[in-house]
Structure formats: structure tokens, C-alpha cells
Design a protein around this nucleic acid. Structure first.
Length: 285
DNA sequence: CACCAGGGTACCT
DNA sequence: AGGTACCATGGT
């Protein structure tokens, strides 16, 4: 299905699209000759940097671009966030290596489902699994000719009516029953994702962790990337490596000691600092 | 080809 | 409480 393209230009400062879209917080962005192509909610989107601003193309429908500004966090004052990071050598190196990296504000269901699929998977593989899931179960989108991303992320309701075997066919292995359980919980109303963002970060985390296959790490990713709880600090293998190597090179602190450290040391935007450490560790050398 | 990947859980001392 | 095997798949 082809459609007319609509353009807008978002004024931004200090925004690195590549770092932001490919740093492992979202999984549906691909670099093409014409820019970064992806899907936000029910819309196909293409983005590219033009004179420091962001030029966005989508198919005609909205005359309001609020959904895009929110997703990209285009109006966020990044410098005021970075100013709250601890003034130490690892964070200085991370900020230097991650110029213009932003945290996105993603749709909760897509974020939750994607990170349920992420456990012990490389980012490239997560992208492949998510794309299989979208083409098989997501609704077809209005797209320009030659688009790579042609389907929306499947809704919880769409996935709730699949089977574990259907999902395993998308190469997600042992994660299939966990995704199915999450889809059913959201579809049935047993888990209300709109309510999760209302309470404290602890309440929200507890609610998400009631799902099978959702532990502290995945819950924190959703809290940070979808709900914007800046205190949420996901610790994966890379961040663990960063913490041990850069902050505790001598001895190995116990998990509880480490948890207390990340919850106090990195300040009010600890989650943001975490993403900078993550990207720094993954891109150096 | 081993080794590892944006983990979580059940089961064992 | 703290270790450990296992889960499925494929990139490096």
C-alpha cells in the first residue's frame, strides 16, 4: 500500500539520531540510504538529520506532530540531564562517547513485549525476532513504495489469540510462553499498563514483575524506556561489566551492595547515566 | 567451533 | 541466603 508523504522539521539541538535509535533501547529502526526508517505506534516513519535538526517523513494523516516530539523527546534539555551525572572519570568518558544520545519515550506494550524477548539475546537477534513477530501478527501499515517496515507492532490482543507454537516459530525459543502470558494479562485487563505509570517506581516495578519472565532488569528497562522513571537502572551484562571494571576494579561487591550503589550514586537521572555507560561499553574499540 | 548474548527461574546446598 | 543448571537460538 503506497501513500503520500508528509514532512515536518523538528528543531533540536545536540541530537544524535544514530546513537539514539541504534543503542539498544528500541528495536525497529533501520538505517537506509534515505535515513532511519521505523514505526511509531500506527505510523511508518523516516528520520534524518538536516543541519542539526530532524527531518521527519510519514504518510499523510496527522497535522499534529506531538506523538513524534514525545517519542523522540525532541524538546528535552539534554544538558540539564547530563549536568546531574556524577563528575567522575567513567561518566566523563561516557558522555564524551555518547554525544547527543537521548532516551526515547516508547509505547509501554511494545517496550514490555520487546524486552521480554531480549533475555540473553544480542541486539541484532532481538531486532530479527521483533520483525518476524510484526510481519506475522501486526496490522499492515500505510507505507511508501519500497518501505522495509510494513507492519505495526502486534497489539496484546493480537498476540493473546496466538499459540506458544506460533510464537516459537518467530525464533524466540523459551521466551514464547512468557510473551504469551504477558499478552493475555494485558488483553484480559488483569494487567493495566495505563495504571502502571501512575504510582511510585517501586509499585510499578512490582506490578511488572508479576509477569513470568519479567525480573528486575526487564522491568527496569520498561520503567525507563516507556514510562520515563529516571531512577530505573537496568543492569545487564554490559552494565555489570562497566560497574565492575570502572567502579569496583579491585573487589567484587555483593549484589545488594551493588544495587545500593547504583540507586544512590548516579543521581536523579540514574537511568540516563546507565544508558550512557551501556553505550560507552558497547562502542569502545 | 566454542563462547556469549540488554535474564529469569527452579532447584540445589 | 547464595550458587548453579537450564531454557532456545544464532552472531561473532
Amino acid at each position: 500500500m503506497t501513500a503520500l508523504l508528509l514532512q515536518t522539521r523538528l528543531p533540536v539541538s545536540d541530537y544524535d539520531l544514530a546513537a539514539t535509535l541504534a543503542c539498544g533501547q528500541a528495536f525497529r529502526w533501520r538505517a537506509t540510504e534515505l535515513g532511519w526508517e521505523g514505526v511509531i505506534g500506527p505510523r511508518w516513519v523516516r528520520l534524518r538529520a538536516v543541519e542539526g535538526d530532524i527531518l521527519a517523513e510519514t504518510v499523510a494523516s496527522p497535522d499534529d506532530w506531538r506523538w513524534l516530539v514525545d517519542y523522540l523527546q525532541a524538546e528535552l534539555n539534554l544538558a540539564s540531564i547530563l549536568a546531574t551525572f556524577p563528575d567522575d572519570e567513567p561518566m566523563r568518558a561516557s558522555v564524551e562517547a555518547c554525544r547527543g544520545l537521548r532516551l526515547l519515550r516508547q509505547e509501554p506494550w511494545e517496550c514490555l513485549a520487546s524486552f521480554i524477548l531480549s533475555s540473553t539475546k544480542q541486539i541484532v537477534q532481538i531486532q530479527q525476532i521483533v520483525e518476524l513477530l510484526c510481519t506475522r501478527f501486526g496490522s499492515a501499515l500505510a507505507t511508501p513504495l519500497g518501505a522495509r517496515m510494513t507492519h505495526a507492532f502486534p497489539t496484546a490482543t493480537q498476540l493473546a489469540t496466538t499459540t506458544e507454537a506460533d510464537l516459537r516459530a518467530c525464533k524466540m525459543g523459551f521466551r514464547a510462553p512468557n510473551l504469551l502470558a504477558a499478552a493475555r494479562a494485558v488483553d484480559s485487563g488483569e494487567l493495566d499498563l495505563n495504571m502502571v505509570g501512575q504510582g511510585t517506581v517501586e509499585q510499578a516495578r512490582e506490578e511488572l514483575m508479576r509477569l513470568p519472565g519479567v525480573g528486575p532488569k526487564i522491568a527496569n528497562c520498561v520503567l525507563l524506556f516507556a514510562y520515563g522513571y529516571q531512577q530505573a537502572f537496568p543492569v545487564d551484562v554490559w552494565v555489570m561489566k562497566a560497574l565492575r571494571q570502572l567502579y569496583f576494579p579491585k573487589r567484587q561487591p555483593r549484589p545488594e551492595r551493588l544495587q545500593r550503589f547504583v540507586d544512590t550514586y548516579f543521581g536523579p537521572n540514574a537511568g540516563y547515566a546507565q544508558q550512557y555507560l551501556f553505550h560507552y561499553m558497547r562502542t569502545r574499540r
